[in-house]
Amino acid sequence: MTAPPQGPPPPPAAPEPMRPRVQPVKVNPSDYMPLAGGLRQTGQMFALAASVLRMTFKRPFQVRELIQQFWFIASVTILPTALVSIPFGAVIALQVGSLAKQLGAQSLTGGASVLAVVQQASPLIVALLIAGAAGSAICADLGSRTIREEMDAMEVMGVSPIQRLIVPRVIACMAVAFCLNGLVSVVGVAGGYFFNVALQDGTPGAYLASFSALAQLPDLYVGQTKAVIFGFIAGVVAAYRGLHPGAGPKGVGDAVNQSVVIAFLLLFMVNLAITAIYIQVVPPKGA
């Protein structure tokens, strides 16, 4: 039996309580590991490098874009590279020349400075200029396109921005690096010759003869290989930062800055690795 209701009627039903303003926070453990962010970025960059390699062989290949980019990169790098390589070759020639004099090995000056220019200086100069002049331009261009949603628009139309924009740029970087490396090697060696002969009283004959005493053809191969690899790295780093800029125009500026710094760091690391391997694999002449 139920008692009849007594007392005042129950108050009108309270309005449904609002959902609390602060939602329970879902903790994603990787957000709190400082290392995880860096690892994720590294992983994404490697993934981009892999897709660039894969998409290179996918039809249709963007010939027009490649030529335009090649022309653009060459035009922004040739002059600075030539201007840098003359004093650089000279500095090496002077330094090696005076060191050789101290050791009493003047006759080998030519070979030593050629080794230094062809194997180390030339690929690095090329890489620094590609990363600095071309990489920053590529990163700024891609970054501003990304924040204007052009990349999204392209993907929505079923066109891969990697295949369409990034593959031609990376290949152009590699090709320009290859060609420039030849130029720098020649200019550097010629500069070295001039300074050694003109300023250090070296004999032209000894300088040229020592080329083949110390240097060998694989030295040139590894120099060119390095340049191509550096071009690839500079291109991929610039493209990666350009595809993932921070928010807004400031984000693009930061991305350009970071892309140059990251590319430089990577270049020197990779150079160390390649040099170490090369010295193990190809024994120096006469050793």
Binding site: D152, A153, E155, V156
Partner: peptide, 19 residues
């Protein structure tokens, strides 16, 4: 997904034209 996207047309908020 890329293949399916060809069935779509998306009009972006600010056009997203290629500059």
């Amino acid at each position: 997904v890329f293949a399916a996207r060809k069935k779509f047309g998306l009009m972006f908020q600010d056009g997203a034209m290629f500059g």
